[in-house]
Design a protein around this nucleic acid. Structure first.
Lengths: 239, 239
DNA sequence: GGGTCTAAAGTGTGATCTCACTTTACGGTA
DNA sequence: TACCGTAAAGTGAGATCACACTTTAGACCC
């Protein structure tokens, strides 16, 4: 590898000023969860308790609980005889597994959302879509990923199903570390934004079938790109 | 209440002889997870760290991590200004939420299972169904619940989708504490076994649509009984 | 140079302790 | 009897320490 521009996942986070009134563990968990969804950490990247505690400015105790929670979410896995926790390296089969769950649940959530979504919510969703479009044009990966997640999240939240939302978020948590590397291609931006525009259109028309179709296409396209980046990574791993 | 036969959830567990080679935390987590699915703990029941550690014969550290994991699974929630962890008391809306997720995912898993299930697996599933039938006739609630979960689990496992299986198990984990009290009625046994028989029949005929229909009916019927026991509990809570 | 052994550094695990806080129980008072 | 206030018990949160283990780095020898 010529030059390793890839920063450590922790370098993006900083010391994390702890707010009082909430437990350190909960804040660390929320912080890392967001970071994982946003793709700050690469698949295979290890998280040491002491290093994480030092990076965040706490002792290992709250970090341990937060990482254990992430393990329970499937966002981390114990690895090696050392039992160190790392970001899982998904196989093609697992990716397929997750894609089908997403197709079922996010499609279902989209259908429910149509029945309940308010005008104000549609405006917020359209706003996220506009930000995403701008990010795609500028090639700003960070902004694109963030607004993409917000766009989908706001649609599903309109369904008013907290448990469903939690399960969907869990699926995004697993694919988050992969997305950043699959999304850099301009081709993905174009195809993805087509689906997003159709989704926004269907939302305004209150057309449940059209919205579901747009979501399904978006997930299917993304899954193909993810699968491609997966095989690329496997090739690159044999260095 | 005339007599409180309802035992504490811990009384069913015992000191938990720790196997070496596995971490205490993982064993406690697995043990409590199983206990929650089996309905050993009632909704609203509190789990104190020190009491749990004393009951299991360990220190609080591994217990804390296990309980935190269960919180992440939605099987426990922090409650009160004391931040004690307790088994969540589901609302009707949450129960509805979970039911629809189950309808989607378990129906989907059933469809996949038909394509891959082997003869040996069908025999194991039929075996669990036979045990469940016997338990229903004898009115043995413990055995019924255990074999019911095993019956469904083996069907879904035949789909060969670990992530999907994990999400489904997470849903059972949430409704587990309710099931025991909803299932005691003989009417539930009868209706439930009708669906199970149809499921077994569809499995042998390799009829995906019929299997999915049987699963859907089973879940829908169970959800109605759960909702009924929910309102009963709310009435009983105002003592 | 290449291989091997060893010591040091790093890893998670579990136990223990202190702290701040809440809940509970008990006493007295009105 | 009802109410209130105080003390005791119980709660989770977080830091720290000892332990067993793995990984790594380096020295040494061939």
């Amino acid at each position: 590898m010529a030059e390793t521009l890839e920063r450590d996942g922790w370098s993006r986070l900083g010391p994390l000023a702890l707010r009082e009134g909430e437990t350190a563990q909960a804040q660390i968990y929320a912080c890392l969860r967001e970071a994982l969804i946003s793709g700050y950490f690469r698949p295979g990247e290890e998280m040491s308790l002491r290093r994480a505690a030092a990076a965040l400015g706490t002792s290992v105790t709250p970090v341990r609980e937060a990482l254990r929670q992430l393990e329970s979410d499937g966002a981390l896995e114990v690895w090696g005889g050392n039992r160190v926790l790392r970001v899982p390296i998904l196989t093609a089969a697992e990716l397929n597994d997750i894609r089908d769950i997403r197709l079922n649940l996010e499609g279902f959530a989209a259908t429910l959302a149509i029945e309940q979504v308010t005008g104000a919510q549609i405006r917020l969703i359209a706003n996220a879509c506009a930000v995403m479009r701008r990010a795609a044009n500028e090639g700003n990966a960070d902004l694109y990923l963030e607004s993409n997640w917000r766009f989908h999240k706001r649609i599903y939240q309109a369904a008013g199903r907290p448990v469903l939302m939690g399960v969907i978020e869990g699926m995004w948590l697993r694919v988050g570390p992969l997305i950043r590397h699959a999304v850099t291609t301009p081709l993905h931006f174009v195809r993805s934004m087509e689906s997003h525009d159709k989704a926004e259109e269907a939302l305004r028309a209150r057309d449940a079938a059209a919205l579901q179709a747009a979501i399904v296409k978006d997930i299917s396209d993304a899954a193909m790109d993810l699968g491609r980046s997966l095989t690329d990574n496997e090739d690159g791993r044999a260095h």
